[in-house]
């Protein structure tokens, strides 16, 4: 539908693309579903929750920055294994990761989320939103939990999640891309592979549109994270400068 950029791809190619992306996802997903299921009964006890709540704001921020950075390193590995990603110019690889790695972390979060208890796997156990109170970002935390819950309600399989993550990462509308057309081709091929897998898995017709709607929610979460970080940095510039992971600072311009 997009004229010149629409690739002509065969079903076999789409299958191949879907398989590579699923494999890349499974190799880099940080925790396997089985591992998470085994840990699912481990919730923080009240005194542990209170201990997180009583941490100084900057200590909790630093802990979360470390956890986000760890998750992002796995996303970088995921990107590297997507067929075609390493063929993009280095500028565009950086642009896509800078803009999209946290979005993929939020997408992946639904695998680590327990909808029934409204908890997420964090620092060794499952944590509710109250664990993050010391950050002073209640509204953002609520939105992140709501997003994870709504992603969970779609019950995506690992291959669907893998392709959606790749689709998010390969967004061709990011600013500062040098070879936009190459990224567009890759994203369209990924979207076709996602569509193909959704059909193969006999998912409902509207699912692709529901997933497309998630893209704007992801962008809003990430820009709110940036806003919260700048507000934090304004108060604690030295903490960010000296205690935050270098990769986090590089990605979020801290």
């Amino acid at each position: 539908s997009n004229g010149d950029t629409s690739p002509t791809v065969s079903m076999a190619e789409l299958d191949h693309q879907a398989q590579i992306i699923s494999k890349s996802h499974l190799e880099t997903c940080q925790y396997l579903r089985e591992e998470l299921q085994q840990m699912s009964w481990q919730n923080f006890l009240q005194d542990e929750v209170e201990s997180y709540q009583s941490k100084p704001r900057e200590v909790m921020w630093q802990l979360c920055a470390v956890k986000i950075t760890e998750a992002i390193q796995y996303v970088v590995e995921f990107a590297k294994r997507i067929d075609g990603f390493m063929d993009l110019c280095q500028n565009d690889q950086i642009v896509l990761l800078k803009a999209g790695s946290l979005e993929v972390v939020f997408v992946r979060m639904c695998r680590m989320f327990d909808s029934q208890n409204n908890t997420v796997y964090f620092d060794g156990k499952f944590a509710g939103p109250d664990v993050f109170k010391a950050l002073g970002c209640d509204d953002l935390i609520t939105s992140v939990f709501d997003f994870a819950k709504s992603m969970c309600s779609l019950h995506l399989s690992e291959d669907e999640l893998a392709l959606f993550s790749a689709f998010v990462l390969l967004s061709a509308d990011r600013s500062w891309l040098q070879e936009k057309l190459q990224v567009e081709k890759l994203q369209q091929k990924t979207q076709l592979a996602l569509q193909h897998v959704l059909q193969k898995n006999q998912r409902e017709d509207g699912l692709l549109n529901k997933l497309r709607c998630k893209v704007s929610a992801l962008r809003s979460l990430c820009s709110r994270h940036t806003e919260k970080l700048s507000a934090f940095r304004a108060v604690y510039p030295d903490i960010v400068g000296t205690h935050f992971p270098p990769l986090y600072k590089e990605l979020f311009g801290a």
Partner: peptide, 20 residues
């Protein structure tokens, strides 16, 4: 390049992420 030193490093590494 200097601005994204670690990302460059991660992209060029053929194995697991460097210790950050």
């Amino acid at each position: 390049k200097e601005k994204h030193k670690i990302l460059h490093q991660l992209l060029q590494n053929s194995t697991s992420p460097v210790d950050l």
